[in-house]
Design a binder for these strands. Structure first.
Lengths: 330, 330
DNA sequence: TTGAAAGCGCTAACAG
DNA sequence: CTGTTAGCGCTTTCAA
């Protein structure tokens, strides 16, 4: 593997000139620049990242902590984050925490010296712990709002509100909500919104779950929800909804004739054949990109830079998967 | 952040002694060891990975290249690989290639100087390119067999054979195979097996697809398969099968009364309510762990060590999702 | 068993 | 604009 010195020799300049030419081209004269580049090219030079990290104190890595990779919402965020980071020559280390607070803290500690910043997807640790971690390294939070930290969330509760309104309009009174993991900040927010809506309308909401956001869990909950007599079902995420609808199919329960359905995100719901399903569309990829941009700002900007977080808007897709309740037909 | 020197001062020894105590404890006397450990503990010392990498030439990172993270088979492999690597203080960098050969090569190049070895999940590059990459860094292949490289595969074709046999026994003659991505080596192997089986029995096999292994694609293919008159359906993976069954539910097609089904892996099929579904169970997590162990061997062993690859056995689960064809009933 | 010293490959003052 | 000089924090001979 060619080193900086090899390139310097090849180009007939000093090592520092090569270093400058390659990382701050504007500090070098045109002809030198070209000569260095040519030499580097010829030798197939690639800067040793460890050496660079040692001098600069920056590794070029960001860590993205995710509860799991099976949830397509997370894997979408992760893929997008990685893609954007790659454009500026950085890499994203994805670490799976299992949604466990201890594991999360552990990973944070282990990675602290290896990365330039952290993005935490739906972290479960206490706000105090997260802020403490942020004192040591730039850190942004995804899918949860932590005062004092740059947070990126999606306005899913607002979107759900729109869906509730539509259900009221259609004449539903008994609505099921199939809840996601209890440790999820977003699920809490969604339930709050739901309770609020229920309070100011004739809507009765029955909460089912909480469950892990997996296909099989949605399927497992389907019968109970149907038996409860609810005429509409809102679901924590699309994976659960698909699972529930899968079971509806086997049970002979029809959508929307027998039950109206909508989910809180639409990963995997897209491109489904047949009539589209109502959903609150959350830009999972946008979330990943926003987190990375913020981290880049924090790392490149003056120390202590703390970019504003954002709440990304959702798109509410209301389709014929919402219909008047059976009893309302007569 | 405390450095080795800080610990040395705190413990009243030299930096080299601290280094030895922490990485090769047997080279240090008992009392010194204890003193050093205590000092390190007190200061919360963590070795700077960049410095260590610079001297040793090893980063402690492995790279795992995966086509995508949405496929639960891959995310399972990745999670297991990461978990096992963590136990020996190593990390796995997951890089998403999109199943694109150019991207795969690019990532291989970019990461070459950052990692100690590569694990390639279902790589699409030519065997020559993979071998070339292996000359530069330890490399193992998952889900594809490349002569001359340590490869870990699963005997899914063999498992599928068992399923075919059962279908023949039950009296099926027209079987559908919903194929996965054409670039997939495993899909090719499965189709070969299928053709072979068809040749030596009365089984007629119709191939549908190829499709991306996604839920929606399975759903999209369902109608065509039913309309084809096939009485049984084998599917590239469980995600596709779930999608197809989802659509069957909406169409009123019953399993197994109207069509028998089985899939080539069972991620996401497990824990489903109702009667279990026939599947060739592939140990995705075992694959990830095998790859990491092999890499560890290669890195720790003498240069040029090349552990034997393995073909992991599958478990064939045959259930009532396979039944005699409708026409056979009379 | 321990310490001193050199050096991994790069960047960043500091002169010139 | 370019070269010289010091390290970054660790591991590893080599001597003691």
């Amino acid at each position: 593997m060619a080193s900086l010195d090899d390139v310097a020799r090849e180009a007939g300049v000093s090592a520092s000139t090569v270093s400058r030419a390659l990382s701050r081209p504007s500090m070098v004269s045109e002809p030198t620049l070209l000569r260095v580049r040519a030499a580097a090219e010829r030798l197939g030079f690639r800067a040793n990242p460890a050496a660079r990290a040692l001098t600069t104190g920056r590794s070029g890595f960001f860590a993205l902590l995710v509860p799991d990779l099976d949830n397509p919402f997370y894997s979408t965020t992760a893929t997008a984050a990685q893609e954007l980071a790659g454009r500026s020559g950085r890499r994203v280390i994805i670490a799976v925490t299992g949604g466990d607070a201890d594991r999360e803290a552990e990973v944070l500690g282990e990675l602290e010296s290896q990365v330039d910043g952290f993005a935490l997807q739906s972290p479960v640790g206490s706000a105090a712990d997260l802020k403490e971690a942020h004192r040591r390294k730039p850190l942004v939070v995804i899918n949860r709002r932590v005062p004092g930290l740059t947070s990126f969330t999606v306005d899913t509760p607002g979107g759900l509100g729109t869906v509730y309104d539509r259900l009221v309009e259609l004449g539903h009174r008994d609505v099921a909500y199939l809840a996601g993991p209890p440790s999820s900040w977003m699920d809490r927010r969604r339930r709050e919104e739901l309770v609020e809506h229920a309070a100011r309308s004739r809507l009765r909401v029955r909460v089912f779950g909480p469950v892990r956001p997996a296909f099989a869990e949605g399927a497992a909950a389907a019968r109970e929800i149907v038996d409860s007599g609810c005429t509409a079902m809102l679901v924590y995420n699309s994976l659960l909804l698909l699972g529930a609808m899968f079971e509806f199919g086997r049970m002979g329960v029809r959508v929307p004739e027998d039950i109206s359905v909508a989910a809180a995100d639409d990963i995997a719901l897209a491109d489904l054949p047949g009539p589209p399903i109502s959903a609150v569309l959350a830009p999972a990829d946008e979330l990943g990109r926003a987190a990375v941009s913020a981290l880049v700002e924090m790392v490149d900007g003056p120390a202590g830079t703390r970019p504003r977080g954002r709440r990304l808007p959702t798109e509410v897709r209301i389709t014929d998967s919402l219909a008047p309740p059976r009893t309302a037909h007569g």
